[in-house]
């Protein structure tokens, strides 16, 4: 991982042995980030707007079938394929190791989404509205994206900002566990752990050294900030 001037390198560990696939993170993410509601037609057309999805893979045949769940969100790669291809810098890398997305700047070439091997970038094909009074639920901390714009998981950057400001006000670094994205916060099984990878004592950093760890599509050399921990012993013991 590259060293930067920032004391924070945000990262996440996803323990597949804990993940039950329940979907709480998916709704929490949608609730936190003003992610649009997509009707059946939109999803049928492959225009689902979820920033976080749980992939479900089947292996084997009855009765020896196994199910694997894989929560996939933006991996916040350090060598992110999405970033260099954007002609207008809408997709950029911030000092804390996050892949940012500037909605105002995005012209909608969708090149970033093509080049994202994890397919976690979602595009606003439709103009979305929230029928009244459903619009009351929209969070004032995040932009409501217009059509024609690419969007994606930000690790709940609004929460990170808030925590950093508060910590700065109190003249201390952000404590481990003080800031959590909505998905990690709600995960019943605590499969998602978020924190500062630059702090070797943080929970996520300790998990990132686990022998079970792996990165998704590691061979592509994208250097994600998201680690997965292998689901142990799903097979016969």
């Amino acid at each position: 991982m590259e060293k930067t001037s920032s004391p924070y390198q945000w990262g996440m560990a996803i323990d597949l042995d804990r993940c039950t696939g329940c979907g709480a993170c998916v709704v929490a993410c949608q609730a936190e980030n003003n992610v649009a509601i997509c009707d059946k037609k939109e999803i049928a057309q492959g225009r689902d707007m979820h920033w976080l999805r749980i992939e479900r893979y089947w292996t084997g045949e009855y009765p020896d079938v196994r199910v694997r769940f894989l929560p996939v969100l933006c991996q916040h790669c350090h060598d992110a394929p999405c970033e260099p291809v954007c002609p207008v810098y809408a997709s950029y890398h911030n000092q804390d190791g996050l892949n940012g997305q500037v909605y105002n700047r995005c012209v909608g070439t969708r090149y970033c989404a093509n080049n994202c091997p994890y397919a976690v970038r979602v595009f606003n094909f439709y103009p979305h509205d929230w029928p009244k009074p459903l619009d009351n639920q929209l969070s004032p901390d995040i932009t409501v994206r217009s059509r024609g714009v690419m969007e994606k998981c930000t690790f709940c950057i609004q929460r990170i900002r808030r925590a950093k400001e508060e910590a700065k006000g109190e003249g201390r670094p952000v404590r481990d566990g003080e800031v959590q994205p909505a998905c990690a916060q709600t995960c019943p099984a605590e499969a998602l752990v978020f924190g500062n990878l630059a702090d070797p004592q943080s929970r996520v950093a300790r998990l990132s050294r686990s022998p079970r760890r792996f990165k998704l599509l590691e061979h592509l050399g994208t250097h994600p900030s998201v680690f997965y921990l292998k689901g142990g012993g799903r097979e016969h013991v």
Binding site: A24, Q137, T186
Partner: peptide, 16 residues
Amino acid sequence: KLCARGQAALQELYHP
């Protein structure tokens, strides 16, 4: 912690 249904209870409040 909270499940998907708990997260979505907000929409019960603001259901159109």
